[in-house]
Structures are given as C-alpha cells and as structure tokens.
Simulated assay, not measured.
Amino acid sequence: MSEDKIRTFEQKRAETFSNSQILCNGPGTCVPVCISALLLEILALKKVIIVYVESICRVETLSLSGKILYYFSDYFIVQWPALKTKYPKSIYLGRIV
C-alpha cells in the first residue's frame, strides 16, 4: 500500500514540475553536468534550470567553475556583496549556510 502511495505522489510531482533543475555549489565536477544539461536544451529535449551557488570562501573573485557557469546558469548566487558589484547578473542573498 505504501509503494502505491509513493508512486502516485511521485507521478503527481513529476506532472506538476515538468522542468528539471540542477543545483551546483562550486566543485569542478558540476561543469560537465551543467554542459550536458545545456546540450539537452539546445537539442530541444528538455528544459533544465541551472542554479549555481558560489562558495562562501570566494570573497573577491569567482572560482573557475563560477567563471564558466556565470554565462550559462539561469540563477547565479553569490554570498558576498563585493562579488555582486563585480558580476551584475549574480544574485546576492547573503551567507547561505
């Protein structure tokens, strides 16, 4: 009975949220995953929303992953106001712990 409930719940959730999302937080391994998501979008197979959160230790400059994904992500979140001034597309939310 529980398995049926889970399957029903997951089916409804999949129908409600048809877009997929990727949440990245800085490691270089996220870049190939995001590029493959962009490839899916380019081929018109699936729309994937990319949310990138820059590491809290990056105070004045972006990491290499951040520099690459700054141009491709849908939402680019920084945790320091100095980065918001340097990168206008970014969203400053303060410290995210």
Score class of each variant (00 low, 15 high):
residue 57 C to R: 10
residue 51 V to K: 10
residue 37 A to E: 02
residue 26 G to C: 06
residue 53 V to W: 01
residue 52 Y to W: 09
residue 50 I to T: 10
residue 24 C to N: 01
residue 32 P to V: 11
residue 28 G to W: 03
residue 25 N to A: 11
residue 36 S to G: 14
residue 45 L to G: 09
residue 21 Q to E: 04
residue 53 V to M: 05
residue 54 E to Y: 08
residue 38 L to F: 08
residue 24 C to Y: 00
residue 35 I to R: 09
residue 49 I to P: 04
residue 53 V to H: 02
residue 24 C to A: 11
residue 25 N to V: 07
residue 31 V to H: 03
residue 17 F to T: 00
residue 31 V to T: 08
residue 47 K to I: 09
residue 44 A to P: 00
residue 54 E to F: 07
residue 20 S to Y: 04
residue 40 L to S: 13
residue 38 L to C: 13
residue 29 T to D: 15
residue 42 I to V: 07
residue 57 C to H: 11
residue 50 I to A: 09
residue 31 V to F: 03
residue 27 P to H: 01
residue 46 K to Y: 03
residue 31 V to Y: 03
residue 27 P to N: 02
residue 20 S to P: 01
residue 28 G to K: 09
residue 47 K to N: 13
residue 29 T to E: 15
residue 46 K to I: 01
residue 48 V to A: 05
residue 19 N to F: 07
residue 56 I to E: 14
residue 59 V to C: 10
residue 42 I to D: 08
residue 23 L to T: 06
residue 39 L to P: 02
residue 27 P to I: 00
residue 50 I to E: 06
residue 25 N to W: 11
residue 58 R to A: 11
residue 45 L to T: 11
residue 45 L to D: 12
residue 34 C to D: 09
residue 19 N to G: 01
residue 49 I to A: 05
residue 42 I to T: 09
residue 41 E to T: 14
residue 44 A to D: 15
residue 32 P to K: 10
residue 30 C to Y: 03
residue 32 P to L: 13
residue 36 S to N: 14
residue 44 A to M: 09
residue 35 I to Y: 13
residue 26 G to R: 01
residue 55 S to K: 13
residue 32 P to G: 12
residue 49 I to Q: 08
residue 23 L to D: 04
residue 54 E to R: 09
residue 47 K to S: 11
residue 22 I to F: 04
residue 53 V to A: 04
residue 32 P to Q: 14
residue 43 L to Q: 12
residue 58 R to E: 13
residue 38 L to I: 10
residue 54 E to W: 07
residue 41 E to F: 09
residue 59 V to R: 15
residue 59 V to N: 12
residue 31 V to Q: 02
residue 34 C to P: 06
residue 24 C to P: 00
residue 19 N to V: 02
residue 58 R to M: 12
residue 31 V to I: 12
residue 54 E to P: 06
residue 19 N to T: 05
residue 54 E to D: 13
residue 49 I to N: 12
residue 42 I to A: 09
residue 30 C to Q: 03
residue 28 G to M: 06
residue 58 R to G: 03
residue 45 L to S: 12
residue 46 K to S: 04
residue 43 L to W: 11
residue 49 I to G: 02
residue 18 S to I: 00
residue 43 L to C: 12
residue 53 V to K: 03
residue 49 I to H: 07
residue 50 I to G: 05
residue 50 I to F: 07
residue 56 I to Y: 15
residue 32 P to I: 10
residue 37 A to D: 07
residue 33 V to P: 01
residue 17 F to N: 00
residue 22 I to Y: 02
residue 55 S to L: 05
residue 47 K to Q: 11
residue 50 I to S: 06
residue 50 I to R: 04
residue 31 V to M: 05
residue 19 N to H: 08
